[in-house]
Amino acid sequence: MRTDVLDQSRGGMWAWLLQRITAVLLIVGFASHLISTHIMAIGELSYDNIAHRLASGFFVAMDVMLLAAVLYHALNGARMVILDYWLSAKAQRRALSLALWLVGVAAFIYGLWALWPWIKG
């Protein structure tokens, strides 16, 4: 079906929906993230400053949520850019999605590993 082909070139319905949901999470999350780092803690950024923030469960939940949401949003966005110019075969598109999922999951685990000493407290 022509419509199916067109929808595929747009990345699919679920990816579209998740891109919107993560977008809303990121707007809210970045407002908190940027105000707490760039305005409240400007010039004071250090290991201890981060430790102080991550002593609160609110910021731990916020940072882990942001890490997951931003990785999905960024890698799906990169996928949409790539699909606009390259990879027309279905198998290639699948391979790209799989590769990006692997990168995303690996980056999420790496990010959690990096945050762990602060989360553990």
Binding site: A74, L75, A78, A107, Y110, G111, A114, L115
Partner: peptide
């Protein structure tokens, strides 16, 4: 997207 990965790298420096 590029900044995100740089940011994860910097935070992992600790």
């Amino acid at each position: 997207v590029f900044y995100l990965f740089a940011h994860i790298g910097v935070i992992s420096s600790a």
